[in-house]
């Protein structure tokens, strides 16, 4: 469990990073928190000839919140996002979901953007980005583009990043008014990759009836899957909604795979269970937020 030889680069600016990326091309790999990449290298499942450490590049350690949402720089650690009070005020789902990412020591090093770029369908943060219609800011020498989750996640452990591109930040839109969110997952052990996970978002209309209900799933396909389950919720108030109908609808539309921890059928069953749980909780939170009139939400660190 020792990595094969590689050349280590430690660029001191984003520009220099982009130069190195352009030079190394497909032989290069960006190192941010290293919580997924380094184990893969130690197991020789990944063998990049060049490792480009962006921790000294400068300017990437920025966590910015506004009423529109949360922008997370490429070297911002998951633990920081999890604990930041402003982030929680603007988009509480980030704290709820990040709390399920492995263990605290991993979150102390692991980055949010790294988790997105790693594009693991078992990852919590890709599902959150997809649910919220967030975006990723991507730069290369002389170019910059904004990519949606749908376009970014190309398959298991595969993103649409080109070899010369660097994901510099991710943007998670704020929780809308009269809306609530929730995250839940079933893992075999505390902190493991989820057997199945779900992030739910419920928005209410002026009459406090469910106007939109969406769920993003973890570990049920090659990419984060987002389902719009609004119809199945029947436009009632959250308290009067039969969430099991949404659960049934979700089961009918998902096509999860099997692995040594769970059969496809069990995963499908769990996806339904979790759909009802996250929508139920998100609905209640939306109702609470709307009733208190200021979009505030309660919830402490898990």
């Amino acid at each position: 469990m020792k990595p094969p030889p590689f050349t280590y680069h430690s660029p001191s600016s984003v520009e220099e990073t982009l130069d190195v990326l352009a030079e190394t091309g497909t032989d290069g790999k960006v190192l941010a928190g290293g919580q997924s990449l380094i184990p893969l290298m130690n197991m020789r499942l990944a063998a990049p000839a060049h490792l480009i450490d962006i921790n000294g590049a400068g300017g990437l350690d920025v966590l910015r919140t506004s009423d529109d949402g949360v922008r997370v720089g490429a070297t911002v650690r998951q633990a920081r996002v999890e604990r930041d009070a402003e982030v929680f005020r603007v988009q509480p789902l980030l704290r709820w979901a990040t709390g399920f990412v492995a263990h605290p020591v991993v979150r102390n090093r692991g980055t949010v953007v790294g988790s997105l770029a790693h594009a693991d369908p078992a990852g919590e943060l890709p599902a959150v980005l997809a649910l919220l219609d967030g975006t990723i800011e991507v730069v290369s020498r002389g170019a910059r583009r904004t990519v949606t989750g749908r376009d970014f996640f190309a398959g298991p452990l595969e993103s649409s990043l080109e070899p010369d591109e660097l994901a510099v930040s991710a943007f998670f839109p704020a929780l809308p008014d009269r809306a609530g969110a929730s995250f839940a997952e079933v893992a075999r052990r505390h902190g493991d990759f989820a057997v199945c996970g779900a992030a739910g978002l419920v928005e209410l209309d002026d009459d406090l009836r469910v106007a939109a209900a969406r769920v993003a799933y973890v570990s049920v396909g090659p990419n984060p899957v987002v389902l719009d389950l609004t119809e199945a919720c029947g436009h009632r108030s959250p308290g009067a909604t039969d969430w099991t109908r949404a659960a049934d609808a979700a089961r009918g539309r998902l096509d999860p795979g099997a692995d040594i921890h769970a059969s496809a059928e069990y995963r499908r069953h769990l996806a339904g269970v979790l759909t009802a749980r996250v929508l139920g909780e998100a609905g209640a939170r939306a109702h609470g937020a709307a009733a208190s009139g200021d979009g505030a939400h309660s919830g402490a660190l898990r």
Partner: peptide, 23 residues
Amino acid sequence: AYDESGQLLNASFMDFLMPYATE
């Protein structure tokens, strides 16, 4: 988790589920 050909599919602490203190 051996498969039929005798490959051990969970030869790591990621997939061999030794419980943590939390379990």
